[in-house]
């Protein structure tokens, strides 16, 4: 028996919209800890890891660990039928082949339920160890989104370099080149608008802008984004989900062949 009641249902709507173009089908793993997901894109270049902790739900019942395979496009179709202010409850039975989404309007005058077919997904789970990163950049998520969008009109790849000067985003294309440098900026009253650079050593890595632009679909989930870089690891782009958990995107770099 599974029953998860999420008062801020819009969070689930946003999460699915953020990952559905990257991942087609995924297993949602439900345990006492919370609802989690790990999936790679079809070309195995990017990986998404989601955690919604049980404490973030108003009611959380998960009698035993369960993995539910869902088509994210179908899930998106169903969740789009929920209002932004609706409370969403996810219900499932052990061993069942469907899941039910119940939507309640804030004043309880409209209650809908949508039953979705589950699917068997043979997905591989990768172990992601804790790592020390050469540099961690925290910046406004809207700024990061703007940079990725702007640069993708000029080039296909971006070099992200962190030095003591700041974080530099560089691209090159047929029409020319572009460099955007963001310096550390802690002086603002609002911490969400700050750019904070923690650097242990300088790092410079190249990534496909197509993927970074896809990750920025999570921008509405969090005011700030954290970019963790190491020369020998995929970049981690993390959006915190208020009081509940996170959505992390891992992207393998491009290297000189």
């Amino acid at each position: 028996m599974l029953e998860l009641r999420l008062v801020q249902g819009s969070l689930l709507k946003k999460v699915i919209e953020a990952i559905k173009d990257l991942v087609t089908d995924a297993n949602f793993d439900c345990s006492a800890t919370g609802l989690s997901l790990q999936a790679m894109d079809s070309s195995h270049v990017a990986l998404v890891a989601l955690l919604l902790r049980s404490e973030g739900f108003e009611h959380y019942r998960c009698d035993r660990n369960i993995s539910m395979g869902m088509n994210l496009n179908n899930m998106s179709k169903m969740l789009k039928c929920a209002g932004n202010d609706d409370i969403i409850t996810i219900k499932g039975d052990d061993g069942g082949d469907t899941i039910t989404f119940m939507f309640e309007s804030p004043n309880q005058d409209k209650i809908s339920d949508f039953e979705m077919k589950l699917m068997d997904i043979d997905s591989e789970h990768l172990g992601i160890p804790e790592a020390e990163y050469h540099a961690i950049v925290k910046m406004p998520s809207s700024e990061f989104s703007r940079i990725c969008k702007d640069l993708s009109s000029i080039g296909d790849t971006v070099v992200i370099s962190v030095t003591k000067e700041g974080v530099k985003f560089t691209t090159r294309g047929d029409i020319g080149t572009a460099n955007i440098v963001c310096r550390q900026n802690k002086t603002i009253d609002k911490p969400d608008e700050a750019t904070i650079i923690e650097m242990n050593e300088p790092v410079s890595l190249t990534f496909a802008l197509r993927y970074l632009n896809s990750f920025t679909k999570a921008t509405s989930l969090s005011e700030s984004v954290t970019i963790s870089l190491s020369s020998d690891l995929p970049v981690v782009i993390e959006y915190k989900i208020a009081d509940m958990g996170y959505i992390r995107f891992y992207l393998a770099p491009k290297i000189e062949d």
Binding site: M40, V45, H125, L126, I255, D257
Partner: peptide, 14 residues
């Protein structure tokens, strides 16, 4: 030539 590498080259299957 710049080549895209796979996420699998970094993390092992569990």
């Amino acid at each position: 030539i710049i080549a895209q590498i796979s996420i699998r080259q970094f993390y092992k299957k569990i």
